[in-house]
Simulated assay, not measured.
Amino acid sequence: MSDRGITQLSDLARLRGAPELSPASADRLRAELANALSQSSWFTVGVMAPSAEMALKTLRTLESSQGWDPLDLVETTEESGPAYLKANQKVGTIRIRIEHGLGEGVLISGHGDDETQPSTTWGPLPLDFF
């Protein structure tokens, strides 16, 4: 899937899987995402990947690119197949399970410390976005 028609983060919300992005589109979305992330206190991340290893590698790259402390892997799978990773900064954990039928990509949800700051989700972003 190409990035035709993807000009801002909100354009991704209609997609089931992450598009391939041109370098210019990726740079534009990274700048918009950096601004959006700065408005949140903490994050949850979902990674849909071809394997548990790829999902964890993608999360670790995201953590590093954002200067986030690495979260603790508390549950994973030894099975082969498409994986879904759920990371939660609030509780500091990562859980990975096999999940068939998903697209591929990264979903990031920003959260506030109270109900005055609504949760917002961005993505799906490509696995190599960060």
Rank of each mutant, 00 (worst) to 15 (best):
Y84A: 10
E99A: 12
G103Q: 05
V91C: 07
S80E: 14
G110L: 00
E115F: 13
V74I: 15
E99R: 14
S80C: 02
Y84S: 10
L73Y: 02
E78R: 13
I94G: 02
R97W: 03
L85H: 00
P70Q: 12
K86M: 10
I98M: 12
G110Q: 06
L85E: 03
A83W: 08
R97F: 01
D113N: 14
E99P: 05
T120W: 06
G103M: 07
I108V: 15
I94A: 02
D114A: 00
G101S: 11
I94V: 15
I108P: 10
G103A: 01
G103V: 04
S80W: 01
E79A: 15
T116I: 08
A87L: 04
A87P: 00
T77D: 04
T77C: 08
T93C: 03
G110S: 01
T77K: 07
H100Y: 11
G112A: 02
S119N: 10
G110W: 04
H100A: 14
D72I: 13
H100N: 14
D114M: 04
Q117H: 13
A83D: 06
G101P: 09
T77Y: 06
D114S: 05
T76C: 01
I94L: 05
E75T: 11
N88E: 11
R95H: 08
P82S: 13
S80T: 12
E115M: 12
P70Y: 10
E79Q: 15
T116C: 04
K90D: 06
S119M: 12
G103W: 09
V74M: 08
G81P: 09
A83I: 06
G112P: 05
L107Y: 10
I94T: 05
L102C: 00
A87E: 03
T116V: 10
A87W: 03
G81L: 05
G92E: 05
E104I: 05
T116D: 14
T116P: 04
T120N: 02
T76R: 10
E115D: 15
T77W: 06
I108A: 08
G101W: 11
P118C: 07
H100S: 14
Q117M: 14
P82M: 10
D114Y: 04
L85D: 02
E104R: 13
G103D: 09
S109E: 15
R97T: 08
V74A: 08
L73D: 04
G112V: 03
G81S: 10
T116F: 12
T76Q: 11
N88F: 03
I108R: 06
E78Y: 02
E99N: 11
A83G: 09
I94K: 00
L102K: 11
T76P: 06
P118D: 01
K90C: 02
E115V: 14
V91L: 02
G81F: 02
G103T: 04
E78A: 13
T120M: 08
K86S: 12
A87S: 08
K90Q: 11
V74L: 10
E79P: 00
K90S: 07
Q89P: 05
S109Q: 15
S109I: 01
I94N: 02
I108F: 09
H111L: 06
I96N: 06
